[in-house]
């Protein structure tokens, strides 16, 4: 895929040509405003439907437990009272702080490790000649769609027997390996758009494949690698299934599992649930808002995971 525009930041809509011409008379202006109002109403209704549930969670997470149970978050302005106790309790006595650190310790290696291996493989598939190269690539594209579940039973056995499910190793390896087909696909397709003459010149100068990879291909591919990295990081951070399967030690649980166990342990501790869920969201939200450009580019370039 070639470079894509960032749709969140391109202001000009396709239909705007018709809308933006300057109205000539007051009557025309009024008519246009009336004609446009259903559009605005629909869009604002959509914005409310998409914002309210999340805002509700945020508000709830700061309300005292008693208030949460006796009145809805939407009434909060009638008698505002806020507290940090929910966060305090969930971070300390519910082990969410440890789980936060676990999530980081799981997600960072499980991002860097497949990134490196996918970049190496992507380079080989784009720029090193060898027989059956395209067959290998097609095979990898096929693997992109395979449901991870197909591997769970033998992998849990093998990795469990090796004692790797007590810590993070099993989940690193599993996340890393399952991310490869998509990563290789994305990076190979990016690498192949790099100017061949540049690589050729380096080869003639006697540069090794490793040198070309390190000092030409990687520096030129930072946007693609960043997109993939952000994707993989969020994917791992947000994942529950793989953590359920490949971590068999409560002390190593990431936040997703901690929140899930919060649900099954007690009836429903709404105040803890709200604070925990919001903590889980913070890192993806920070990543999303600071790196939105890469995120959307990756989405458009790769299709999806």
């Amino acid at each position: 895929m070639t470079a894509v525009q960032d749709p969140l930041h391109t202001g000009a809509g396709v239909l705007e040509g018709a809308v933006k011409r300057k109205p000539r008379t007051a009557g025309e202006r009024v008519r246009r405003a009336l004609a446009a109002s259903p559009v605005h109403l629909t869009l604002w209704a959509i914005a409310v439907v998409w914002l309210a549930p999340t805002v509700g969670l945020l508000v709830t997470s700061f309300r005292p437990q008693g208030d949460i149970l006796s009145s809805g978050w939407w009434t909060v302005m009638s008698s505002p009272s806020f507290t940090l106790e929910n966060y305090q309790e969930v971070l300390t006595s519910q082990g969410m702080f440890g789980a936060f650190l676990n999530s980081l310790q799981i997600a960072i290696p499980a991002t860097l490790f497949p990134l490196l291996i996918a970049a190496l493989a992507g380079y080989a598939l784009a720029w090193i000649r060898f027989p059956f190269r395209d067959t290998v690539f097609l095979l990898i594209i096929t693997l992109m769609m395979i449901p991870v579940q197909i591997g769970f039973i033998p992998l849990v056995r093998a990795l469990g027997d090796a004692g790797l499910t007590r810590g993070f190793v099993a989940v690193w390896l599993a996340h890393g390996a399952f991310a490869l087909p998509f990563g290789i696909f994305l990076l190979r397709n990016f690498f192949i758009t790099l100017p061949g003459s540049l690589l050729e010149a380096a080869r003639i100068d006697g540069a090794s494949e490793w040198k070309i990879f390190r000092s030409i291909v990687i520096p030129l591919s930072v946007p693609a690698i960043a997109s993939l990295g952000i994707f993989q990081f969020l994917w791992v951070w947000n994942d529950l299934l793989m953590a359920l399967v490949f971590i068999q030690n409560p002390a190593a649980n990431p936040m997703t599992r901690q929140i899930q166990s919060l649900l099954s342990q007690y009836g429903t501790e709404w105040h803890l649930l709200a604070a925990g869920a919001f903590l889980l969201m913070t890192v993806p939200l920070i990543v999303f808002f600071s790196l939105q450009r890469f995120f959307v580019q990756g989405l458009l370039a790769g299709g999806v995971k």
């Binding site: 969140l8 959509i46 969670l57 994942d239 649930l273 869920a277 919001f278 999303f288």
Partner: peptide, 23 residues
């Protein structure tokens, strides 16, 4: 508008689930 509807894509299904357990 796009950012508002896109935010749920970034957060965990687990968080989404909790948000709607409330709703």
């Amino acid at each position: 508008i796009k950012a508002v509807v896109f935010v749920p894509m970034a957060i965990a299904a687990t968080a989404l689930a909790v948000i709607f357990l409330f709703v």
